[in-house]
């Protein structure tokens, strides 16, 4: 089971309302978010619109606003909200014993992409 999950480190590396980045060599960089409500989410760090780095956006509720053109992206589904259309891949994430884990196959899937 553990083999399927990639240990990213302790949860306190990300403070509420912030995001950190996880570069994947040969793949897409991943953004890991911690909402003000304390939930963790991971998305490919690329807005579906013009590939803005979502990790740098303002986090509010379960949404991040892209810093380039203010698209609102759902952290749960990766989908653009409101009038905008588009979707960014979600990386399955779990928190276990105070550590953040990402689904290894999904991280690797970003490499294939």
């Amino acid at each position: 089971m553990i083999g399927n999950w990639l240990d990213i480190g302790p949860v306190d590396q990300i403070t509420p309302g912030n995001a950190r980045t996880l570069p994947v060599m040969g793949g897409e960089e991943i953004a890991i978010f911690r909402t003000l409500g304390g939930e963790f989410h991971a998305l490919v760090n690329k807005c579906p619109h013009k590939h803005g780095p979502l990790s740098q956006g303002i986090v509010h509720g379960g949404v991040v606003t892209c810093p380039l053109h203010n698209w609102n992206i759902s952290l749960k589904t990766g989908e653009a909200l409101g009038e905008d259309k588009g979707c960014v891949p979600v990386i399955p994430l779990k928190v276990d014993a105070g550590r953040i884990f990402l689904l290894r196959s999904a991280v690797m899937g970003q490499m294939a992409a």
Partner: peptide, 15 residues
């Protein structure tokens, strides 16, 4: 400092 640093890096060997 955390705003500027990556949380970690994934390299093919680790995967």
């Amino acid at each position: 400092a955390e705003l500027h640093q990556h949380i970690a890096e994934v390299r093919p060997m680790e995967i």
